[in-house]
């Protein structure tokens, strides 16, 4: 341990003996948000796990499309079926990307460097959020392209006319639904700040909670009326069906405040003050 002190300290520089050069420099410019977003996007791709998570978006889209072409009857080779098949894995992968974008700073402890270089944590998290949304939207465009190709190729192979039964408005709602799912993952990451914990919580929320709430609604009349207002999962479902009534938008808004906005605000509040270890 201290094998290095053999040499006598030559470092004893008495005050004044050394020529101290004043290194005054103009204050640096603040770091623009666009640069932080760029860095955060890079960090989503630059590890092996991050890369394959992103690659899996394309891979599962192609696999799902191929499966429809191979297995679906000819009259089912419609665009909405392709969209649904591609959308299913997407609703799992995108929230994982949202979760890991936040939790890796804590689970991998890289936050120590990140928040030292960028001490205003709110800006870093804002940049992460925007980067995640960008990834979500681009992924949906990739899915759209794969779905279109699948519909064209599938119907060509089957010798039927391609059926374009998804409108642009419907597609936008699906994008919104997918991005909301991703942001829900982001929020869980922020609140839990542990990869495994956030992922498990996400699956409890998407797989375990809905049947329980459904059971409650079917047995308790009062809850059946209340459910659309307080069940975020339930309120998001119409997005994927392609049309929402005014009241359904209200359901979505109210339940989003409960399940997303409030916890997100609490998470932000905590993270900006918490110790980074």
């Amino acid at each position: 341990m201290s094998t290095t002190v053999l040499s006598t300290p030559t470092s004893e520089s008495s005050p004044g003996a050394t020529t101290v050069v004043e290194r005054r420099r103009p204050a640096p410019a603040p770091i623009p948000l666009t640069r932080i977003i760029g860095v955060e996007l890079r960090k989503m791709f630059d590890t092996r796990s991050g890369f394959w998570l992103m690659a899996s978006i394309v891979i599962t889209s192609v696999l799902a499309t191929a499966a429809i072409i191979v297995f679906a009857p000819d009259d089912q080779l419609t665009f909405d079926n392709f969209a649904a098949a591609i959308g299913a894995p997407m609703t799992v992968i995108l929230p994982m990307i949202g979760i890991l974008a936040v939790t890796s700073e804590w689970s991998q402890r890289s936050g120590l460097t990140t928040f030292t270089l960028l001490p205003r944590r709110g800006r870093v998290l804002g940049a992460k959020l925007l980067a995640a949304i960008a990834v979500g939207v681009v992924s949906m465009v990739v899915a759209l392209v794969v779905g279109v190709l699948g519909t064209l190729i599938g119907s060509a192979i089957a010798g039927v006319d391609p059926v374009w039964n998804v409108s642009a408005a419907h597609f936008l709602l699906i994008v919104l639904g997918s991005v909301l799912g991703m942001l829900f993952g982001f929020m869980l990451g922020l609140v839990i700040r542990n990869s495994a914990g956030a992922i498990v919580t996400y699956f409890v929320y998407t797989l375990v909670l809905p049947p329980l709430l459904g059971l409650l609604a079917s047995t308790q009349h009062w809850f059946a009326n209340l459910q659309p207002w307080v069940d975020y999962n339930f309120a998001q479902r119409p997005l994927f069906d392609g049309s929402l009534s005014g009241q359904q938008w209200q359901h979505l808004g109210v339940s989003a405040v409960l399940w997303f906005v409030l916890p997100m605000a609490a998470g932000l509040f905590i993270v900006r003050r918490a110790e980074v270890k």
Binding site: P28, T47, S110, L112, T113, T116, L117, L118
Partner: peptide
């Protein structure tokens, strides 16, 4: 409050606190 702290202060607190996959 530093606008770009890395240009003014070099910090090393824990050499192991890095994403192991990078």
């Amino acid at each position: 409050d530093l606008p770009n702290p890395g240009l003014e202060v070099g910090v090393l607190l824990d050499a192991s606190a890095q994403h192991a996959g990078r």
